[in-house]
């Protein structure tokens, strides 16, 4: 025991948390102060272009949108009052989040087995699988969505087929189903890639170990493999969910005007009614709710899955 036990003790759980959680990967305050005197400013210049771009094209417009939401057409909170009292707005916001959630779940169910397949095939096959999953990203969104319109149309090939086999024609286009389908296709890579990178990191000998300890394949999956793939699942889900919230073209082309998503509503307020303040208020509302969801989710993720040791040091 002597001389052996000590090694593990030196790393306190606090240090572990820092090591595993990038968000906390800042040195403790005292160390930071000691180092600050020796900071070299040269390397920070490398950040300048990034800071300039973010400021000009993200921060400034965002502040502008916020200002408009409380000043247009006149100073006050009337835009937010309109947002909260008009049931259509809340309904659209709720529908947006729901659609995004459905898309996230669909992507997850498709992506997980796909990503798993990528981890067990050879180098060549993996290249092809990656290519297939990236393909939608490299096609013009308009072309792709128009293709879906043709496919999903009431007289399109899918409905022709459904009628031919006796199921009968179904409403596919101008439904949330159609929107979710189109969105899931585009967003799939954002789910596959983080899950793949999480799965690729899982040491397969852990499954051998699990099996030697008496676990069958199913148990090994749920007790060992799935928990270890959670960081990838969470990363992919958050990305897909948030990207899904802002979709505009697919919901407007594949969805029904009666079932608009928030991006269409904003477009309508700004471009059709020229109500810049109300459009801005909707945008800010979307942003705030998204941030809240992210914060809650993040807390949940940290507690649930990023248990110490998931990431190899």
């Amino acid at each position: 025991m002597v001389g052996l036990g000590d090694r593990g003790l030196t790393m306190s759980s606090a240090t572990r948390a820092i090591a595993t959680d990038p968000a906390l990967a800042t040195p403790p305050a005292s160390a930071g102060r000691a180092r600050r005197s020796r900071v070299k400013w040269g390397p920070l210049l490398l950040l300048l272009p990034a800071i300039a771009v973010v400021t000009m094209f993200f921060l400034v417009p965002l502040v502008d949108v916020f200002i408009r939401s409380v000043t247009d057409p006149e100073p006050g909170l009337q835009n937010y009052e309109w947002l909260l009292t008009n049931p259509v707005n809340l309904e659209v916001l709720a529908r947006t989040f729901l659609t995004s959630l459905i898309v996230t779940v669909v992507c997850l169910l498709v992506a997980y087995p796909y990503a798993y397949l990528m981890t067990i095939v050879g180098e060549r096959a993996r290249g092809w699988l990656t290519l297939f999953v990236m393909l939608p990203l490299w096609t013009s969104i308009l072309v792709r969505t128009l293709a879906w319109m043709v496919l999903l149309a009431d007289t399109g090939p899918i409905n022709d087929f459904l009628e031919a086999i006796g199921v009968g024609r179904q409403p596919l286009i101008r439904t949330t189903f159609g929107v979710a389908l189109g969105m899931a296709q585009v967003l799939l890579p954002f789910m596959v890639l983080p899950i793949y990178s999480a799965l690729a990191k899982i040491d397969r000998r852990l499954l051998a170990a699990s099996s030697s300890l008496g676990a069958n394949g199913l148990t090994s999956f749920f007790k060992v493999y799935l928990p270890l793939s959670r960081p990838g699942i969470f990363a992919g889900s958050i990305t897909v969910f948030i990207l899904g919230l802002g979709f505009y073209i697919i919901p407007s082309l594949l969805g029904s005007p009666k079932e608009a998503m928030v991006s269409s509503l904003i477009y309508q307020q700004v471009s059709v009614f020229l109500l810049w303040g109300q459009g801005a208020a909707l945008g800010i509302a979307l942003l705030v709710v998204t941030i809240i969801i992210l914060v809650v989710f993040n807390r949940f993720v940290r507690g649930a899955s990023l248990a110490p040791g998931v990431e190899p040091e």
């Binding site: 852990l206 170990a209 099996s211 998931v310």
Partner: peptide
């Protein structure tokens, strides 16, 4: 017989402890 039915213990070179 599959590994999980053999009632053997195994110790691996890389320990193979479940990190979570």
């Amino acid at each position: 017989l599959p590994a999980h039915k053999r009632d053997i213990g195994m110790v691996f070179q890389n320990y193979a402890l479940f990190p979570h």
